[in-house]
Amino acid sequence: MTPLIKLENAHKIYHLEGVDVPAVNGLSFTIHQGDFVALMGPSGSGKSTAMNLVGCLDVTTIGAIYLGNQNTKNLSESDLAQIRGKKIGFIFQTFNLIPSLTALENVALPMLFQQVSRRQRLQKARKLLEMVGLANRWQHLPNQLSGGQRQRVAIARALVNDPEIILADEPTGNLDTKTGNEIIKLLQELHKQGKTIILVTHNPELTKQATKVIQLRDGKVVGG
C-alpha cells in the first residue's frame, strides 16, 4: 500500500547571517492512511519544521516529500496551496483564526478558496460548528470566544474541506487540562471516522492515543 505521506532524507537548512543551520537533518518516515501519529520531541528538535514540511507550508532544501505518489518538490506555490486547502486540515496551538471574521465565516473560509458556492459554504460551516458544539456561537468573533471554543472553531475549519490529513500542532498547548482533553477526544473521534491524524506535541501523556509515535531529536528520528 502506498503510504499517505513519505519523507525521504528530508533536510531543511536555514541560512542565518551566513551560517547554515539545519532544522531537520535527514528526516525519513512514512505515515499511512488511518494512522494517528504523534510527532514528539523537545523544543529545537525540528518538530515544527517537520510539520511545516508535511503540511506543505515549506519545502525541503534536500530530500523529498511524497503525498501519495506526488513529489511535492516539483509543485508550484499555487499547487501547494491547492493541496493544503484540499488534503490537509491545520489545527494550531494559537488557534490562528482571522480576528475580523465571525466563527461561521472563519469555518467557511477554506471553502471560499476552493470555489464552493456561498450557500453551500455557510450550510456546511454551520453543520460543523454544530458538530463541535458551538451551534449557538456562530456569530461571535474569535475574541468573544474562550480558548477552548476557539480551538473548536479551528477544528471545524480544519474539517470543512474533508481533508485526508489533520495536522495538529500542539493543539492543547494554550488550553487548560480539561479543555485540552476535550480537544484530544475530538481528535480521537475524527480518527475513528477514518481521518489520518498527525499530532505534534511534547506531552508524553497525549501519545497514548497514537497508533504510531515518531520521536525527533536534533532534526532526526530517534525512535518510534
Partner: peptide, 16 residues
C-alpha cells in the same frame, strides 16, 4: 501578515 499566513495555510493561492 499573520492573517495572510493563515489564509495561505488553509488553501489561499497567491492570486487570491
Amino acid at each position: 501578515t499573520k492573517d495572510i499566513g493563515i489564509m495561505k495555510a488553509i488553501g489561499a493561492r497567491n492570486s487570491a
